[in-house]
């Protein structure tokens, strides 16, 4: 109970602080739209890329939703670096604050933002002629995929933040993890168009689990069995990375 209450108040703190940054809100809304419009235009003439969807933008929308979610999660550890720099974390740790609540609140915050951005992208997609073939369940699956993907990478990102504890190292780590995972995934092109070895590797890429789930919901409107499996895999990843981040407090506390 205490854990949930603390997590709740920590989430309130983070969202409230974010809402006080108008520029951040503008970027949160505009950035995913730029991705969708830019990539949508860039690859729109390459017919082989749409992988069974009625348009490239329909194929791309679930990909961009997932890209956005996992980038957001990967960078979310910057909030932990800021809290460490401001010594807010030390203040919480010397009080009976649950370490798991500190992590869980950051992870859930990343998930909430990913869902808001997914909603914005879906609405823009509708305007651009995308149809969500999975219906109401499809919407839910897209939101779940975005949230879980952001949360899984947020856990990882916070574990790294507590381990490296420096902004420059954090940026390097996020890029090192983020860009390869993006290009080893079906965000921009279907697996059938990938070189064989990349297609094989991409099956183990958590980003891809989210992309396939979201694409099943939007483009295919089916394959619910495999979609459920992908979401379960993502949920396991969320648990694993959140525990890793909670455990990383030990490394941090050894260093001070």
């Amino acid at each position: 109970m205490q854990l949930l209450r603390q997590t709740g108040w920590m989430i309130v703190r983070q969202l409230r602080n974010l809402m006080r940054e108008p520029i951040w809100i503008a970027l949160m809304v505009i950035q995913p739209l730029i991705w969708l419009l830019l990539y949508g235009q860039l690859f729109s003439r390459v017919g082989a890329l749409r992988g069974g969807a009625s348009s490239y933008i329909e194929f791309l929308t679930p990909g961009i939703i997932c890209m956005n979610a996992f980038f957001g999660g990967s960078w979310s550890g910057m909030a932990m670096i800021a809290d460490l720099d401001r010594h807010v974390i030390d203040r919480f740790l010397a009080a009976p604050a649950s370490r798991f609540a500190l992590i869980l609140s950051q992870v859930v915050r990343a998930g909430i933002i990913a869902v808001i951005q997914a909603l914005i992208l879906l609405l823009l997609g509708l305007v651009l002629g995308v149809r969500i073939h999975g219906g109401a369940l499809g919407w839910l699956v897209v939101f779940a995929a975005a949230a879980l993907l952001a949360m899984a990478f947020a856990g990882l990102s916070h574990g790294i933040a507590l381990t490296v504890r420096r902004e420059a190292s954090m940026i390097a780590a996020a890029n090192f993890v983020g860009l390869p995972l993006m290009f080893l995934s079906a965000i921009l092109i279907p697996p059938t168009q990938m070189p064989h070895w990349i297609a094989q590797i991409s099956r183990f890429n958590p980003v891809n689990w989210g992309v396939h789930a979201a694409r099943n919901a939007i483009v295919n409107g089916g394959h619910w069995g495999s979609t459920g499996l992908y979401l379960l895999l993502l949920l396991a990843a969320v648990a694993a990375t959140s525990l890793f981040a909670t455990w990383s407090f030990r490394a941090y506390q050894r260093s001070i």
């Binding site: 703190r13 409230r16 602080n17 006080r20 940054e21 401001r86 010594h87 807010v88 030390d90 203040r91 010397a94 009080a95 009976p96």
Partner: peptide, 17 residues
Amino acid sequence: RRSIGYVAQDSGVDWEA
């Protein structure tokens, strides 16, 4: 932790709150 107050050398104030 329940019985102590800790005012660290560096301020632990949340600047955005």
